[in-house]
Design a binder for these strands. Sequence first.
DNA 1: CCTGTATGTAAAGGGAACTTGACAATCATC
DNA 2: GATGATTGTCAAGTTCCCTTTACATACAGG
Lengths: 70, 70
Amino acid sequence: MENHVEKLRKERGLNQEDFARAIRVSRQTVSSIENGKYNPSLELAFAIADFFGKTIEEIFIYKGGGEDGK
Amino acid sequence: MENHVEKLRKERGLNQEDFARAIRVSRQTVSSIENGKYNPSLELAFAIADFFGKTIEEIFIYKGGGEDGK
DNA sequence: CCTGTATGTAAAGGGAACTTGACAATCATC
DNA sequence: GATGATTGTCAAGTTCCCTTTACATACAGG
């Protein structure tokens, strides 16, 4: 699943550390999500969407179940 | 975080087992989510929203960070 | 070159999400 | 009272999310 977190963060002129603080997670968590290492929890996805004033769907791109593949 | 999964599932006339099969998880996972034992992953939240033809925000109710409480 | 800023990444640990398997309880029908 | 259908729940195990600590890299500006 891809996302636009890095793009949105940079548009806000924030570094990973300040952004992480704003959404109350560690900087490593921000880095991991931006680099696609893993997906955020639903809770964190909501927090990120809230922060940017957008919906989850506008930020995270779900590749539908695609018939078995991931 | 609350959700409308049980309501939507029943509106579709499905039992937990068939619904679980449709979204490719175990019946216990459906039960746990409906009963608020834990939140789904972002991936599963998308699959559920997709199944119902709704957005995640329409199904899962996020209680904003609320200043520290949960 | 040195210092500070920003980012990537790895290790180790805790807790949350999800699995399979099994058993109990309710309710409807026969 | 026995049967089938539906749901709740517990136990044990795996994988994923997130943490703290730490080190490495690159890119400024002085």
